[in-house]
């Protein structure tokens, strides 16, 4: 297996205004993030709001540059601060955002949503673009005739399928999934996760899966990176993280995740019964 995506000591600073008559302050959102990911695998990035996981997603997707450190895609160092992102590079990494209600333009038909990446990054002729978009719709579990519909005509799960289809139009090798199922209902979440697994097998895709939901991560990821306030606190295989967490923060996260465990329910019910009957 070959390493396809690697980060070495990535940092990112944001400059925030300190307020009226005060100087600007620098906030370090990422403190030296390092990782490496093999082709066809899934790396989950777990953490709570403000931990820097979305900042990292933006760097990996070549939306924002890192302030220091190296981002290496297929053995090649990428620095978008000094060099413009080429179409080839853009085609390698794509992203699916959390909320399919705001990540699709309401004025764009599904067909336009799907063909736009091709128009911008390739010189595929119109008829071919349409053909590819229709095939992609079928691949993500929608229908060819959805090509001419608007996003508002679809449910949340279907919209997320459209967003996934858009991300796949350029045949990327790496897909950054920024909380792709957290806005979806449980049963729809299961469908979208299944779809993502199928697509990963079919196209040998590499996933960076950003999530705060540990039960989804446990099901979906090969490796897990736990982040807290811009730092990696633990980085290990899924089994190690879930069976033998080392860092206190990981343990806190695991303990806080509600689980539907029958023994735990029995214990809780018994405790409550004793409490109220004793009173």
């Amino acid at each position: 297996m070959s390493v396809i995506l690697e980060g070495r000591d990535i940092t990112r600073d944001y400059i925030v205004s300190g307020g009226f008559m005060r100087g600007a302050k620098t906030v370090r959102a990422l403190h030296g993030i390092s990782f490496s990911l093999e082709q066809g695998k899934t790396l989950a990035i777990v953490g709570e709001s403000g931990c820097g996981k979305s900042t990292l997603a933006r760097i990996l997707t070549l939306i924002d540059p890192a302030n220091s450190g190296d981002l290496i895609i297929e053995g090649e160092k990428i620095d978008i601060a000094t060099r413009k992102v080429t179409s080839d590079l853009r085609a390698k990494v794509q992203i699916v955002f959390q909320n399919p209600y705001s990540s699709l333009n309401p004025r764009q038909k599904v067909g336009e949503v799907l063909t736009e990446p091709l128009i911008i990054n390739t010189d595929v002729p119109a008829a071919e673009r349409r053909k590819r978009a229709e095939e992609m719709l079928v691949k993500v579990g929608l229908e060819r005739q959805h090509y001419n519909r608007y996003p508002h005509m679809f449910s949340g799960g279907q919209r997320q399928r459209i967003a996934i289809a858009r991300a796949l139009m350029l045949n990327p090798q790496i897909l950054v999934l920024d909380e792709p199922v957290s806005a979806l209902d449980l049963s729809v979440q299961a469908q979208v996760l299944n779809l993502l697994k199928d697509l990963q097998d079919e196209f040998n895709l590499t996933y960076v899966f950003i999530s705060h939901d540990l039960s989804v991560v446990r099901y979906f990821a090969d490796e897990v990176m736990v982040m807290n306030s811009g730092e990696v606190v633990e980085y290990a295989s899924r089994d190690e993280i879930f069976t033998n967490p080392q860092h206190d923060y990981t343990k806190t996260l695991l303990a806080a995740t509600p689980v539907a465990d029958v023994d735990k329910i029995r214990e809780r019910v018994a405790r409550r019964k004793a409490l109220f009957e004793g009173a």
Partner: peptide
């Protein structure tokens, strides 16, 4: 459909 109840590789929907 709960991920923690996944049997094998797929989730039931």
């Amino acid at each position: 459909a709960l991920p923690e109840n996944a049997t094998g590789d797929r989730l039931l929907t």
